[in-house]
């Protein structure tokens, strides 16, 4: 059996047209291309498109609701941003979850990981693209909130109140990025859309309620809660009052609830069989 044509060497022009290995100049796949493809995959289905569109729709609806129903004294930029930010902080982690799990639930991973067998690079591209979408969404939300603030103040006959600084916007961005990383973590741990979404709601709705109840009825837990409850620690970012202790609590809780499971999940993604 002929093994003369095993390694493609771009500089050698084949004299025999049937020498298949030398037909191409094969170049590695750059990360920018992977990111572009992953971005495309987020928008190219109806479900994906409307999930993305929901970010903008949520921002506009929330602003409209504030203008329509909120009392005049809360018509300020911070209130608009909070109104938009709450639903956004639910949608963004779900976008992060689905970017990972759709490869498994829809079984597209069979093609994706065959064309790009270095799964870590695929995941990196997904994380970069999703975080970029998150940051852009928050800038859009800030802009929609600002328009809402101007319109709302004009309707109420007030001067617009601008009370979001660069720092507090930065905290909000950080809080949402942590939320999206939570989504990735659940995505790589469960590798199934329904399981990961359910786990996300347990994480973001059931656990905080349970911790709050425990803190309310058990005195010993009250001081412990900020060190255990990751949502509690992240919520401090929205309050714009981060002390050194708050940062430590954020570090400890995210280590346990985010970084360690994320590392285990990534390890599983790299090793698990794709079927």
């Amino acid at each position: 059996m002929s093994t003369a044509t095993q390694t493609p060497t771009p500089s050698v022009v084949p004299q025999v047209p049937t020498a298949p290995a030398a037909r191409h100049e094969v170049r590695p796949i750059p990360m920018s291309r992977l990111a572009k493809v992953e971005l495309r995959k987020m928008f190219d289905t109806r479900a994906g498109f409307w999930l993305m569109a929901s970010v903008a729709i949520v921002a506009v609806l929330a602003s409209a609701a504030v203008i329509a129903w909120a009392p005049d004294e809360v018509i300020n930029q911070e209130f608009f941003s909070t109104a938009i930010g709450m639903p956004l902080s639910v949608v963004l982690p779900i976008i992060a979850i689905l970017s990972i799990t759709s490869e498994y639930s829809q079984r597209t991973g069979l093609t994706t990981y065959t064309l790009v067998p270095w799964r870590g690079r695929v995941i990196t591209a997904k994380v970069l693209v999703t975080l970029a979408i998150g940051v852009v969404s928050m800038v859009v939300a800030l802009a929609v909130g600002a328009v809402g603030n101007v319109v709302g103040a004009a309707i109420a006959g007030l001067d617009p109140v601008w009370n979001i600084g660069v720092q507090s916007f930065g905290y909000i961005v950080l809080a949402n990025i942590l939320g999206m990383l939570m989504g990735f973590m659940l995505g790589v741990v469960f590798r199934s859309s329904p399981a990961a979404v359910v786990a996300y709601f347990v994480y973001s709705l059931v656990l905080p309620g349970a911790f709050a109840a425990l803190a309310a009825f058990q005195g010993w837990f009250r001081d412990l809660q900020p060190w255990v409850d990751v949502n509690f620690a992240i919520t401090r970012l929205f309050d714009n009052s981060m002390t050194a202790e708050n940062w430590q609590q954020l570090g400890v809780t995210t280590l346990v609830w985010l970084w360690i499971p994320l590392a285990l999940g990534l390890r599983a993604v790299l090793r698990a069989e794709v079927k």
Partner: peptide, 10 residues
């Protein structure tokens, strides 16, 4: 297979 730089082309 993992040593291929752009597997789809090969």
């Amino acid at each position: 297979y993992r040593e291929l730089v752009n597997p789809g082309l090969e």
